[in-house]
Write a protein that binds this DNA or RNA. Structure first.
Length: 743
DNA sequence: GACCTGCTGCGGGATG
């Protein structure tokens, strides 16, 4: 267990411990007291080298809790504490924090230097000349520094006293998060000592897990500063919308009218205030932004609705952010999770969620943007579209999956539960990057040195030595690296070209895209797989356009204003997986008669239907239903378990697929499925790697194409499957033999 | 039906 700081000594003299110039700054702000997280963190960080996680709600002063004591220590300027690194997942966040810290540190003769791809070379050079400062940097720029500065690194970072990781949750379990762990480890190896690590976040599901992420192998020594100060009142309304159209000529047309009802509702309830609307896709952002803007135009009123997503250019996004920050006119952003993290957008009155939230943690993060003024409640409106039922409706539709999932997530949110981070996979793709990067940093390494640096004592401990050696062998065969006569591993010309290109620094893959341009201004980009013909219409950045020219060579599409338009398709990638706990809660909601007070009348009707169908299908007693020629397994488990069970059934010849909340065994009777499960449980346990090897599209991440096949399978299994829970789910199932067929 | 993030060094030309 991690140690917890007692908050009993609230009258501590943390303030007195700070540098007098920081005290004056606090007075000038007219703050009457320090926030709870600050009171607790200040003495810990002034005291010495302890790793700390500061977990506190949004807008509760986490950044200051870290930087008041850090700046105090830097002002004392000792040999091993003259530099602090602040690592952020977003450039926009670095820019925000820079302007905040700049004002604070101005009087202290401590430079605050932002360092990312948009920062001029000159600023970086100035920092390198005298690295007594706070350096605000992205993981990618830090990667570049390790590669480019190589042996000079030790002198640049010799005074490093603190590493602050902001939005810690956003790194955990991801490619980028594994890269960051590796970078921190490599820095400590260069310095020959540990550096105090500080993680900041508002939505950590599991503190012990976050501690273990921050300091792998010694999570139990990380001090947790967990402040629940600022818990705000929450007002929730979940609206159910029944799509009444009985002529489903096109599924899209069906969806449109429910979306129009949502647009009408949003227009009425959000106009005149600042809000965020989260539909779950960029396409839906464009659809709603276009529809809401036109409603404003129809009234002859100024537009209040602005789009924001990852394919829009920086300029267009900044327009939206500026509209939100303006005090004189109201603005609502229709956005994806680009506005989920803490970019400064001022106070927002309410948050709307269209369709189920991606996760409870994501919903919490989104809601954290609302009610930021003291005393204001956070307001959440959710919109769930459900279809009319007929004889062909899926079990997911009959059980109103979207509405029930949203209700389940809201109840978990209220209880303060979030999903824990993703499980700790092998991350072999990121290991490829780190191997090549380390060879570039040191000029060359012996196999044993590389193994020790990254795997044996490093962040890739989930990898076996056999897999590591097979990877090195594979990289050799592909002429990415070679071994010289002394045994030293070196980059081959092909490997050097990879490492020298700037696209190497990011651990995650990205696709090529067409830029969309109008009168010299870049609006954003769309995937290259779907170039548009001249003369076609487009809805983009919330407006309507006619395509004028397509320049293949420069990958540019020129557009001009138009009256018609169609929303482009953006290629989605991996779906978001639902956690076990959410599915369990969904079942509890369906099984009981407890009231769900935050559902509107239409939602209540849909809930009654779902509960009726749950009992009609006898799902309180049975976990398998034969419908037509197929069998449906309802196990109330998360997607990792369902995906694994699907592969397990396939492996014994019982062809199946995951459809919403059920695993469907196609063309199989209950007896067939029972037989398959019996066989799975009686035979030696299958390994997740072997199960994965039946898949053809395992390549997901940036460097997967360089992995030997056995490692690719093991890697996929470690990230996407959960064999232990799948086996325990199957072995705990009661014998369904006594239930008759339903139809 | 399905999100997001990030990126060096150098050379050429304009400007002060």
């Amino acid at each position: 267990m991690s140690s917890q700081v007692s908050s009993s000594d609230k009258r501590s003299s943390s303030f007195e411990l700070l540098d007098p110039r920081i005290q004056r700054w606090i007075w000038s702000k007219k703050w009457t007291e320090l926030r709870e997280a600050q009171e607790q963190a200040i003495p810990l960080l002034l005291d010495g080298c302890k790793d700390i996680i500061i977990a506190a709600s949004t807008a509760s002063g986490k950044t200051e809790a870290a930087f008041f004591p850090i700046l105090t220590r830097l002002a004392a300027n000792s040999d091993t504490c003259s530099l602090a690194l602040y690592i952020s997942p977003l450039k926009a966040l670095i820019n925000d924090q820079w302007s905040r810290l700049e004002r604070l540190s101005e009087s202290m003769e401590i430079k605050v230097t932002p360092w990312h791809g948009d920062i001029a070379q000159g600023k970086k050079t100035t920092f390198l000349k005298s690295p007594h400062a706070c350096l605000l940097i992205t993981p990618e720029s830090l990667e570049a520094m390790l590669i480019r500065k190589g042996h000079g690194l030790e002198s640049i970072l010799s005074g490093l006293g603190f590493i602050v990781v902001d939005e810690l949750h956003s790194f955990m379990g991801t490619e980028r998060g594994k890269q960051l762990q590796s970078l921190l480890h490599r820095i400590e190896i260069v310095l020959g000592r540990q550096v105090c690590r500080i993680g900041l976040s508002a939505t950590l599901g599991d503190m012990a897990e976050a501690a273990e992420y921050l300091r792998p192998g010694s999570g139990e020594n990380v001090v947790i500063v967990n402040s629940d100060e600022g818990g705000q009142e929450l007002l929730v309304l979940v609206k159910g919308l029944l799509e009444r159209s009985r002529i489903p000529l096109s599924q899209k047309g069906c969806e449109d009218s429910a979306i129009q009802r949502i647009a009408n509702d949003l227009f009425k309830s959000l106009r005149g205030t600042n809000n965020l609307v989260f539909p779950n896709s960029r396409e839906m952002v464009e659809t709603l932004a276009d529809s809401l803007r036109r409603k404003c135009e129809d009234l002859g009123a100024p537009n209040e609705f602005w789009p924001h997503h990852g394919n829009l250019s920086k300029e267009v996004r900044e327009e939206t952010e500026a509209a939100l920050k303006r005090a004189d006119v109201p603005a609502t952003a229709i956005c994806t999770n680009t506005l989920e993290l803490g970019i400064d957008i001022g106070a927002v009155k309410s948050v709307a969620q269209v369709h189920s939230p991606p996760s409870v943690a994501g919903l919490r993060q989104r809601l954290g943007r609302s009610g930021r003024n003291k005393g204001d409640p956070a307001i959440l409106r959710c919109f769930c579209i459900e279809r009319d039922l007929d004889d062909n409706s899926s079990i997911s539709s009959q059980l109103r999956e979207g509405l029930i999932q949203t209700a389940a997530m809201v109840t978990l949110l209220v209880e303060g539960w979030f999903e824990p981070g993703l499980k700790n996979g092998i991350h072999a793709s990121t290991l490829v990057q780190q191997c090549l990067s380390a060879m570039a940093q040191y000029g060359g390494l012996m196999v044993g040195q590389l193994w020790n640096l990254l795997c044996c004592q490093g962040p890739f401990q989930a990898l076996s030595k056999d897999h590591f050696l097979s990877l090195i062998h594979e990289l050799g065969i592909r002429e990415i690296i070679f071994q010289d006569s002394t045994g030293l591993l070196l980059l081959a010309p092909k490997g050097e070209r990879i490492v020298e290109h700037y696209s190497f620094f990011a651990a995650f893959a990205s696709q090529e895209e067409f830029r969309i341009v109008t009168s010299g201004k870049t609006l954003g980009s769309i995937p290259i797989e779907r170039p548009l013909e001249p003369g076609s219409f487009l809805i983009f950045a919330g407006r309507r356009w006619l395509v004028q020219h397509v320049f293949i060579k420069t990958r540019t599409i020129e557009v001009e204003s138009a009256r018609a338009g169609a929303v482009p398709h953006f290629d989605g990638t991996a779906g978001i997986k639902v956690h076990d706990r959410v599915r369990e809660r969904m079942r509890e909601i369906l099984q009981t008669e407890s009231t769900i007070p935050f559902l509107d009348p239409e939602g209540q009707v849909l809930l009654q239907q779902a509960r009726y169908n749950y009992h009609r299908l006898e799902l309180d007693k049975r976990w398998i239903i034969e419908i037509g020629r197929d069998s449906h397994l309802l196990l109330w488990k998360g997607d990792w378990v369902l995906d694994t069970i699907q592969l397990m059934l396939n492996s014994v010849g019982c062809r199946s697929s995951v459809e919403g909340i059920s695993v469907v065994a196609v063309g199989a009777s209950t007896e067939d499925v029972l037989h398959a499960i019996k066989r799975l449980l009686s035979e030696p346990r299958r390994s997740a790697s072997i199960l994965a090897s039946s898949l053809e599209n395992m390549s997901r991440e940036k460097w997967d194409w360089l992995l030997p096949n056995d490692l690719l399978c093991a890697n996929y299994a470690s990230l996407q499957l959960d064999i232990d829970r799948a086996y325990s789910a199957l072995s705990g199932l009661p014998d369904p033999g006594r239930f008759p067929k339903l139809r």
